[in-house]
């Protein structure tokens, strides 16, 4: 039986259609997030969405959860405060490649290092959409952007490698085309104690396509589909063969201790020491 899950979660007071361009993958990723939350049976009241600034970060306004649309790059920092102050809440961060890895890069690695129980979904389209198509920290070398008219000369981050190295418990990559896989990974990420990073390769059929002559939205979607390979397949390829590929799958799935849990233990120890603190 098909279900109109997303429609149970749209904000009743919000006007549609949403802000994203035709063929943008962001709406696909948002509905995958909502289905993942739904399938875990999480309550709307106790699931908080936090985002930064950028195209992707507009997502939380459309769905009926408590939500904070923060400042550029700081989504994980706001989310850390929310989760620390009330560890009972499920906290999902929606961020983009520029928001999460450039201006928010420091918060990204430190959230991973702390391994705080937050799930961050990186809407990764390799470009700054809202400001006019500048190159982002995940843009490939030689791709074009408004600020890379001669081709990008900066090497990109691999979001998953970065998150794994920084210590996140769960790290996975999917694409907007592989929406079912994406939903599964987000679900696993939310269920996982500790920090989860889900890198989602999503098309920008407006600006990325304009600067890189990547065709219409369907061309971009097909390109994502055709370039996608699994981790297992990638292991058999040389670096040159992997050059243009999108490697999807689970990059890390482990059980380092989670931050708010460790802090709760610390609080128990601290409370026991209150007696030492009695007034003289």
């Amino acid at each position: 039986m098909m279900q109109d899950i997303i429609h149970q979660y749209l904000r009743p007071s919000k006007k549609f259609p949403h802000v994203w361009c035709p063929g943008c993958g962001d709406g696909i990723v948002l509905s995958a997030i909502v289905r993942a939350i739904h399938s875990l049976g999480k309550s709307k009241n106790e699931t908080v969405l936090v985002s930064g600034i950028g195209c992707s970060s507009r997502a939380p306004v459309y769905v009926d959860f408590p939500a904070l649309h923060g400042t550029h790059g700081r989504a994980l920092a706001f989310a850390t405060g929310i989760k620390m102050a009330n560890p009972e809440l499920t906290v999902v961060v929606i961020t983009g490649d520029g928001d999460g890895l450039a201006i928010g890069g420091n918060h990204f690695i430190h959230a991973c290092r702390r391994n705080i129980d937050i799930t961050a979904v990186v809407f990764n389209n390799s470009i700054y959409g809202m400001t006019g198509g500048q190159y982002s920290p995940t843009m490939k070398v030689n791709d074009y952007g408004a600020t890379a008219p001669y081709g990008n000369i900066e090497r990109p981050f691999d979001v998953c490698d970065l998150a794994s190295a920084a210590g996140a418990n769960f790290v996975a990559r999917a694409t907007a085309y592989h929406a079912i896989m994406l939903e599964k990974f987000i679900k696993m990420g939310i269920a996982k104690k500790g920090l989860s990073i889900i890198d989602v390769i999503t098309p920008c059929p407006t600006l990325y396509s304009f600067y890189n002559k990547a065709g219409k939205n369907i061309d971009m979607m097909e390109s994502i589909r055709d370039r996608t390979i699994t981790i297992q397949k990638a292991e058999q390829l040389s670096d040159a063969e992997k050059e243009d590929k999108i490697v999807v799958g689970i990059f890390a799935n482990r059980d380092f201790p989670e931050y708010t849990g460790i802090y709760s233990d610390l609080m128990e120890r601290a409370k026991r020491s209150v007696k030492d603190e009695e007034l003289l």
């Binding site: 098909m2 429609h7 962001d26 709406g27 696909i28 929406a179």
Partner: peptide, 18 residues
């Protein structure tokens, strides 16, 4: 066949099944 792919891939939440 109710594979739900169209729903999953609709960025606009514009496909309704009920």
């Amino acid at each position: 066949r109710e594979c739900t792919l169209c729903i999953s891939l609709c960025p606009e939440f514009a496909i309704i099944t009920e």
